[in-house]
Design a protein around this nucleic acid. Structure first.
Lengths: 154, 154
DNA sequence: GATATACGTAACATATAAAGTTTCATGAGA
DNA sequence: TCTCATGAAACTTTATATGTTACGTATATC
C-alpha cells in the first residue's frame, strides 16, 4: 500500500476545524478530504481520548478543538494516532545469531534510529499554532478566504 | 505488510559471499536466509546489472562478488535495489489546492525530506568493506567461525 | 414522545507491495 | 545426454492503510 497519510490527514482536519466557528461534522470534514466520515472518526478517536478534540452527538453536534493550539505539537498528534511506523525499511531479523547479520543490523539500525529520532524531534518542535500561522501567512499572500468551500473542490 | 527488508537482506547475502571462497548458489544463500532461491535471485538482479556481482549458470555456478568492497557503499546497493521508498509516511496529496493542506505539506515535507537525506547520507558513508570489518571485529571478539553452517540454524 | 441528526463501533471490502512459491526455459559443465 | 544453476513469468500469501456498509446510541428539535 502507498505511504501512510494519517498524520497529514489529521493535521489537515485540525487546521480546518481551527478556522471554522462551531463544531464540524465528520460528514463535512470527509467531504473536504475526499473521503468517508468513518475514516474521519477513526482518525479523531485517538485525539479525543487525549482531550485534544471533543465530539458531540445529535443535532448541532460534531467535532470541536478542545486544546490550546500553541500547546500541542505534531509529536502529540503523532502519538495520539498510536505512533504508526515511520520508516518503510527495517532489519530482516531482530536478534539474529549470525554475526554477519548482527553487523548489518548494527549499521542499518543506527541509521534508522537516527532518522526516526530526527523525525520525532522535528514533530516535537512544531506546534499546531505554528502550522496555523503558516497557513495564515499563505492566505495573506494569496488573499483568499478561509472558507472550506473556497479551498476544496466540491 | 511489515517493513521492507531487502536492503538488510542483500547486505547479509553480500557479506556471506565475501567470506566464502568460490561461488555460492541461490540455493545455499536461500537456506542461510531462511527463504527461497527465487527471492535471492530477485534481490541480486539489480546488483548484477550494476556489475557488483556476477552469476554463472550450470555446474559449479552461482554468485560471486565482482567489485572492490571498499569502493561500494550501501547507497550504491540501495540504488541497485531500485531505490525503494524509505519512509512509511507521506503527505496525503502532492499538489493540493487547499492552503491548509499546503501548509501541512510544507511542514511535514521538510521533515520527511530531511530524514530521507539523512538516511542516504548515512548509506553513502558506509562501504561494504566497513561492514565486513565490523563483522570480523565481532568475530574476533566471539572467536567463532566464518562458516555459514556455524552461524545459521540448519 | 417521535423524528432527524451525528457519533461509535464492528464487520467487511479494496488496493498495494513485499515476500514466498511454482513452473518452465536456457545455458554450462560433467 | 544428463544434471545443475540461473532467468523470468505467473501465481499465492500476508500485512496494512483506506474505503464502505450497517447498526447501535445519544441528543436536539418538532
Amino acid at each position: 500500500m502507498r505511504r501512510d497519510s494519517r498524520l497529514s490527514g489529521v493535521l489537515h482536519v485540525l487546521l480546518h476545524m481551527a478556522e471554522h466557528p462551531g463544531p464540524m461534522t465528520s460528514e463535512m470534514l470527509a467531504r473536504a478530504m475526499g473521503t468517508n466520515p468513518v475514516v474521519i472518526r477513526r482518525l479523531m478517536a485517538g485525539l479525543r481520548e487525549r482531550g485534544f478534540v471533543r465530539s458531540e452527538k445529535g443535532h448541532g453536534g460534531g467535532w470541536t478543538i478542545a486544546c490550546d493550539l500553541a500547546a500541542v505539537t505534531l509529536l502529540d498528534v503523532y502519538e495520539a494516532l498510536g505512533r504508526p511506523g515511520l520508516l518503510a525499511m527495517g532489519n530482516r531479523t531482530e536478534a539474529p545469531g549470525c554475526l554477519v547479520e548482527q553487523a548489518v543490523n548494527a549499521a542499518l539500525g543506527d541509521a534508522f534510529d537516527e532518522a526516526e529520532a530526527l523525525l520525532l524531534r522535528r514533530f516535537g518542535a512544531l506546534t499546531l499554532a505554528a502550522l496555523s500561522a503558516d497557513f495564515h501567512q499563505r492566505l495573506a499572500k494569496r488573499g483568499g478566504s478561509t472558507d472550506l468551500e473556497k479551498n476544496h473542490a466540491a
